[in-house]
């Protein structure tokens, strides 16, 4: 069970959280302007990262906020935790 640094509550156990998939995939502001391929990519195309992965979490049984983590998928090491709307901190490449 991971120990997840919530940007609002600090370190909390994983069972309080729910996972929300890859981060920084914004809903297109005018979806009808996207062709079928682009919309399909928005819906379904996700990275399969080996290493630092930017992902959404929600502190469901805590402050209930969504936030973002950078987690190394190889080691579960958490590299950064930041609020929605703030830019991802620089993470050194693999």
């Amino acid at each position: 069970m991971l120990l997840i640094p919530c940007p609002y509550c600090g370190n909390r156990p994983e069972i309080e959280f729910s996972y929300g998939g890859q981060a920084h995939i914004a809903r297109p502001p005018v979806p009808e302007e996207l062709d079928d391929d682009a919309w399909g990519a928005f819906l379904y195309a996700r990275d399969n990262v080996r290493g630092p992965h930017r992902e959404r979490w929600r502190h469901l049984h805590g402050c209930a906020r969504f936030f973002n983590l950078v987690r190394d998928t190889r080691t579960d090491r958490i590299i950064a935790s930041y609020r929605v709307g703030t830019p991802c901190p620089r993470v050194e490449p693999l």
């Binding site: 929300g20 914004a26 809903r27 959404r56 929600r58 209930a64 906020r65 969504f66 929605v84």
Partner: peptide, 8 residues
């Protein structure tokens, strides 16, 4: 609902 409100 919370997801759309908080993130979009």
């Amino acid at each position: 609902m919370e997801d759309y409100l908080q993130t979009e």
